[in-house]
Simulated assay, not measured.
Amino acid sequence: MSSPTRTRMTGIGRVLVIVYAIMALASTGRSFVQIVERFDEAPLAYTLSAISAVVYILATLALIFSRSRAWYIVAWIAIGFELVGVLVVGTLSFVLPEIFGHPSVWSYFGGLGPHGYFGYLYVPLVLPFFGLWWLIAHRPAVTVPAEPATAAAAS
């Protein structure tokens, strides 16, 4: 029997959580190496990579436990933040690439950028749209409290 606060992940929901977990691992590893080895070269880009790692970790956990109302809200916030982040950083990386110094996870919308930057095959751009769609389609059940028994009904 499953835990009451855990969503039963099947089909696309399970795939979505796995992709979020992979992005969490990839961005955590990337940001750790960047910050430890060469943070002084591009502090903004490497900080953004670390922020994206935290967002992917939080989104992964929130999707897993999104049956709970609180985790459902956390999932909306994390995935909404992710969408805004990838759109803003992606746009700025094309328009003003010099402010970053080096690419981050969300640079060039996570896809192909100039100078041979390969990225994450645009997964960071597409993923939040699927995440938000999944949240809309899988709202947690709302528990309605039972009406208290009245004295008239008792007689």
Rank of each mutant, 00 (worst) to 15 (best):
R8G: 08
G13W: 03
G13K: 03
R14Y: 10
R14W: 12
V15D: 03
L16Y: 06
V19F: 07
V19H: 02
Y20E: 10
A21M: 11
I22Y: 11
M23T: 04
A24I: 09
A24N: 05
L25K: 00
S27I: 10
G29K: 06
Q34K: 14
I35N: 12
I35H: 02
R38M: 14
F39W: 13
D40T: 14
E41R: 15
A42R: 05
A42T: 06
A42Q: 04
P43E: 04
A45W: 07
S49V: 05
S52M: 15
A53Q: 02
V54R: 01
V55R: 00
V55W: 02
L58C: 13
T60V: 10
T60R: 05
A62C: 10
L63G: 02
I64Q: 08
S66W: 04
R69W: 07
W71R: 07
I73M: 10
V74Y: 05
V74H: 00
W76T: 00
I77N: 01
I77Q: 01
I77P: 00
A78Q: 01
I79S: 07
G80A: 10
F81T: 15
L83P: 02
L83K: 04
V84G: 04
V86K: 01
L87H: 01
V88Y: 06
V88P: 02
L92N: 02
S93H: 05
F94K: 02
F94L: 11
V95D: 05
V95S: 08
F100D: 01
H102D: 11
S104K: 07
W106D: 10
S107T: 06
S107C: 08
Y108H: 11
F109H: 02
G110N: 04
G110V: 09
P114Y: 12
G116E: 04
Y117Q: 13
Y117I: 09
F118S: 13
F118R: 15
F118A: 15
L121G: 09
L121Q: 10
Y122M: 09
L125W: 06
L125C: 08
W133K: 08
W133C: 05
W134I: 00
W134Q: 03
I136Y: 14
R139P: 04
R139N: 07
A141Q: 14
V142T: 15
V144R: 14
A149C: 03
T150H: 05
T150K: 09
T150N: 04
A151S: 13
A152I: 09
A152Q: 12
A154V: 11
A154K: 14
A154S: 14
